[in-house]
Each structure stands twice: as C-alpha cells, then as structure tokens.
C-alpha cells in the first residue's frame, strides 16, 4: 500500500520504527500517523462500536469524526489519524478486541 515513488512529490527519508497493534508487531515510519502505518500493513479495522460491535476504520482522516479512536499505551480514545507513531508504541483497538486482550 505504500507509495514509494511519486511523480511530483519528493521521496521521504524516514526512520523505521516498531509498533504493536493488538499484540502483534508491525513496522512503521517515524512521522507517519498510526492510521497510515496500520493501513500500510493492510489493517483497516481500528475499533468495534459499543452497541452493534461493528467494525470501523478511518473515516474523515483529519480528527473530526473520532471514528479511528484507539487505545495507545493505556490512554483511551486517541485519534489514530492525527497521532504519530513512536517506536515501541502499544496500540489496542477499542471494542470487542480490547475486551479480549
């Protein structure tokens, strides 16, 4: 899913970091958002809803809709679309997955 070469935009030089999502380890790049890093790793489901237990992912992409909220290092309801990854960041989806872990 990563765009390595772009006809107009310069390539980005970024350091690799490691994050975990629901206990599994993934590679990400410093400076990118949690939502982008997970999508680059083919992950679209970021949480399950409270009532219907329905999966939700990125919707507005700019922090307005709060659909992408995840738990980051024990802090709940962090917006994955506007929060940057950090090395060793521990991310957990909210909803049924979080209850299981």
């Amino acid at each position: 899913m990563r765009i390595k070469k772009h006809p107009i935009l310069e390539s980005l030089e970024r350091k690799e970091v490691q994050i975990t999502y629901n206990g599994k380890s993934y590679l990400a790049f410093e400076g990118e958002t949690i939502a982008a890093a997970l999508l680059a790793n083919q992950i679209r489901i970021l949480r399950y809803t409270e009532k219907g237990k329905a999966p939700r992912g990125i919707y507005c992409g700019i922090g307005h809709c709060y659909e992408c909220r995840v738990t980051v290092d024990d802090e709940r309801s962090v917006r994955a679309c506007i929060t940057r990854v950090k090395d060793q960041m521990k991310i957990i989806s909210q909803g049924i997955d979080a209850d299981e872990i």
Binding site: I3, E32, A40, L46, A54, R56, Y59, G61
Partner: peptide, 25 residues
C-alpha cells in the same frame, strides 16, 4: 458507509499526498 475502507474524500488525499499510503488499491 460505515464499513472500514469507506472514507471521506479528504482522508484519501491525506493518506496519498501526506502519509504516502494508498487509501486502497
């Protein structure tokens, strides 16, 4: 429209042009 993978058009722009991740194939 709440299914993961459905997004507002602006989110696709952020992903492609800023984050450099394709919103989908």
């Amino acid at each position: 429209w709440t299914t993961p993978g459905v997004m507002a058009i602006g989110a696709a722009q952020v992903l492609a042009n800023i984050q450099r991740v394709k919103p989908g194939n």
